[in-house]
Design a binder for these strands. Structure first.
Length: 269
DNA sequence: TCCTTATGTACAA
DNA sequence: TGTACCTAAGGAC
């Protein structure tokens, strides 16, 4: 689930269900019990996302910092909350809603300065108003690292994950192995603009769709998507399947311990 | 019932 | 570069 669009959507959903209320805070799993006890009865005053980091602000300037990692999941439901399963790290519950957090990499109580430090080590986030693509391009244009790796580096761009990485490179016909320093400013601006648009749509729909209308299965007379990750995509997890545009085989490779997908015909070196 | 896999990151060597 | 961490779903048996 979790790329930046998921986290921004969660910030909205936590706010919709709990902002301005003082939910009961519990940690059925037991790993966050002390902090939960401390926060119960405190008003949720703000929610915020930066990249894949989620912040729940409680009155009194304490924040819960959440990072879902690869496996983390969040489930909302209407009150009354059912008995929690033993993997629920954090549950918020008020008179109308409950929300369960499971399997996060991070769920910790942090202070304002600690939160600032997290923002400081993250790059611009295409989903945030304060984002400056020029800051990201400075890093990209000075690096011999591949653009595929740079896009996944949260210091460069915050919020892009393996799906958006693969898809945005395909949409711009960029070979994933090109060095950052060989990406032109015009190419970068096009990538950035596209990310802003795609990721906002991701927040709205709560899934990643990247296929242009003219390439959808209906438009191309193809059978609908087989993959179950949730959205309609060009290359992500489509190894050895025909490219939607050229019909060639989609390639896959290991890059920095993640699966990379691309079309070697459409994305020529 | 077991094995693999996953939209992530941090830290050790 | 490798490994550890966290969970759940799907597929192979």
């Amino acid at each position: 689930m979790p790329e930046g669009h998921t986290i921004h959507r969660l910030a909205q959903d936590y706010a919709a269900a709990f902002l301005g209320t003082a939910p009961q805070v519990t940690s059925p799993q037991g790993k966050f019990t002390d902090a939960a006890a401390l926060l119960t009865g405190t008003e949720l005053a703000a929610t915020e996302a930066h990249g894949k980091h989620l912040f729940l602000g409680f009155r009194g300037s304490e924040w819960i910092h959440i990072h879902l990692g690869l496996f983390g999941k969040v489930d909302f439901g209407p009150a009354p909350a059912p008995p929690p399963t033993d993997t629920v790290r954090l549950r918020l519950a008020n008179g109308t809603s409950y929300v369960d957090l499971r399997g996060p990499t991070t769920c910790a109580l942090i202070t304002d300065p600690e939160k600032d430090a997290i923002h400081d080590r993250l790059g611009p986030d295409p989903l945030r108003e304060d984002a400056d693509p020029g800051t990201a391009y400075q890093r990209v244009s000075r690096s011999r690292t591949t653009i595929a790796a740079l896009l996944m580096d949260q210091k460069v761009v915050a919020g892009v994950g393996n799906v958006y990485r693969a898809e945005v490179l395909f949409r711009h016909r960029i070979d994933p192995y090109r060095a950052g320093k060989d990406i032109t400013r015009a190419e970068w601006d096009a990538i950035w603009t596209d990310l802003v648009e795609l990721m906002h749509e991701g927040v709205r729909n709560n899934r990643i769709d990247t296929v242009r209308p003219e390439h959808t299965p209906e438009a191309m007379g193809r059978p609908p998507r087989v993959d179950d990750h949730g959205g309609e995509v060009y290359v992500y997890r489509r190894a050895n399947l025909p490219c939607h545009i050229c019909g060639g085989e989609i390639s896959t490779a290991d890059l920095a311990a993640r699966n990379l997908f691309w079309c070697p015909v459409c994305q020529k070196p």
